[in-house]
Nucleic acid binder design. Sequence first.
DNA 1: GGGAGTCACTGCGCGAAGCAGTGACTGCGT
DNA 2: ACGCAGTCACTGCTTCGCGCAGTGACTCCC
Lengths: 158, 158
Amino acid sequence: MPDQRELATAAALALPRFVGSTALFHAAVAERMDVTPTELHCLHLLHGGVSDSPTELARLLGMTTGAFTRLLDRMERHRLAERAPDPADRRRLVVRPLPDRMAELADLYAPMARFVGERLARLDRRQLTALLEFLTDGTAAAERSTTRLPDVTQAITD
Amino acid sequence: MPDQRELATAAALALPRFVGSTALFHAAVAERMDVTPTELHCLHLLHGGVSDSPTELARLLGMTTGAFTRLLDRMERHRLAERAPDPADRRRLVVRPLPDRMAELADLYAPMARFVGERLARLDRRQLTALLEFLTDGTAAAERSTTRLPDVTQAITD
DNA sequence: GGGAGTCACTGCGCGAAGCAGTGACTGCGT
DNA sequence: ACGCAGTCACTGCTTCGCGCAGTGACTCCC
């Protein structure tokens, strides 16, 4: 019967491995869709309405705009997204997700959603809130860390 | 004030993005150590005592043994691990983590551990237990999914 | 109206990983 | 005993995603 300190330590130890294995799961889903993990990640960002700007998306994905151009080429070829001109600024363009393969993506995530749903169903409100907060804060911290690569340390703590 | 159902839905939506961004964080830490994400992931497995067998590690990392040979070459060059002969079977070898750069790794994870610790300190026992269980079960499910790539779906649900 | 800055894009090179095949070694069946 | 199938780590070859650095189109501000 572990006490609170031990639980916290266990969580801190479990985290790095969790991160590694989820990354791998992410790659597995991508492979099932015949798509690179980066394309899949970008699709999530688009689907979540995070941004439609190539430069911004490239930043969030931790890559150069040059690489993002090629990423967009692939995404268009795979019918995941399309380019559209930005009426306000003729240098820019707008990236739009295509509905074509959304159903396929949903199917692949369905079992994961079920897995998550089952676990969550056993939790009470306070447990749910804690978990959700952990996920969202963790996401924010992780996304900060990618934009300030030279100092990951600071990005996490602030 | 969201009810339980809404919270569960929110968590299911937050998850894919969390997965993507943690993968990116993982890559950021690896870059700070002048190491590939795969090398870092392998180091975590070694450090956690998951396995010391090249074939088994390759499987957990979702790669071929051929690629793992080259991975080991890099890890030795970067002083992350070393090869040792297996006295029981002269075909095999044993992979051992090197202590040299462990401190460096701990330093990079320190802020993350602090971030986690702060969040966890606010939680009670039941919340902690729920979170920890979610992490470990999720890790197990994700690791299963990589070993049975042809059917990710089944790996998650069973 | 002109120059600095920003945008998406392009040629080139690197390197991580898959594929398929190799030699060394083990253990099973007869 | 002994040979043969299976397993192990390893190696050329190829593929491909990405970074780097430079380009032309466009915008904004003085």
